[in-house]
């Protein structure tokens, strides 16, 4: 409810009416998977340095038409973030400024729902730029894969069940091969694979067994 009101407000005050399409519904059976790599985890200080978006049409992941961009940030990425996403200052410098990338990205996303893993973080990171740019936040519906996973695996679980919603755990539970992590495109692709399988399972009423042994790998970033 809150978001609908907010969207009505943004729609009314939208600075650039060329972006009204964001408020129109996208093609009926399409969603877009979004992943951002950032200099850190604080939306207030940190910057987006790479972004990838992939459209899913029905049960097909359109990787051949994926959107990928590296963004030249004003800030030098701090060493600890380089360790995570392996984009060094030099790579980031080879990127393009956000004001070039953003219109392309927004057109790519259109009115489609945005799918992601902890999608709120990615959207919050982007909103920082979007707000400056069109004086509105992204109005798109958001779909959280870990939430679908939670419902299929832990929905109705007895109290005290240990929850494990880590990206790697979801991957191995679904049997999806792990690609190199912390590359915006790969992360988006793996998220897309999770999404198509999870939404099919949800539709069929299938559940994910809790007793299934989950192969745990070393903690992310270790």
């Amino acid at each position: 409810m809150g978001r609908r009101l907010r969207n009505l407000f943004y729609r009314a005050t939208l600075a650039d009416h060329a972006y009204r399409f964001l408020f129109e519904p996208g093609p009926p059976d399409e969603v877009v998977v979004l992943d951002c790599e950032t200099t850190g985890l604080n939306p207030r200080h940190d910057e987006v340095i790479a972004v990838a978006a992939i459209v899913i049409r029905g049960s097909r992941i359109l990787t051949s038409e994926a959107y990928k961009a590296i963004i030249r940030s004003d800030r030098v990425p701090p060493p600890e973030s380089i360790k995570v996403h392996r984009l060094r200052a030099r790579d980031v410098a080879a990127g393009r400024p956000m004001h070039e990338v953003l219109p392309e990205l927004l057109r790519f996303i259109g009115g489609r729902p945005i799918v992601g893993y902890y999608v709120d973080f990615d959207v919050r990171m982007l909103d920082k730029y979007v707000l400056r740019f069109i004086e509105a936040k992204l109005p798109n519906r958001r779909i959280e894969v870990s939430e679908i996973y939670y419902a299929l695996k832990y929905g109705g679980a007895p109290p005290g069940t240990v929850l494990d919603l880590r990206f790697q755990s979801i991957l191995s539970d679904l049997g999806i091969p792990s690609l190199a992590l912390h590359d915006a495109f790969n992360d988006a692709l793996m998220t897309a694979m999770m999404y198509v399988q999870l939404s099919d399972m949800r539709q069929r009423g299938a559940r994910i067994g809790r007793d299934r042994a989950v192969q745990q790998e070393a903690p992310v970033g270790a």
Binding site: S59, R60, S64, M193, Q197, D200
Partner: peptide
């Protein structure tokens, strides 16, 4: 590689 898509089958 550039032309690849991914399909999911139930």
């Amino acid at each position: 590689r550039a032309g690849l898509d991914v399909g999911y089958f139930a």
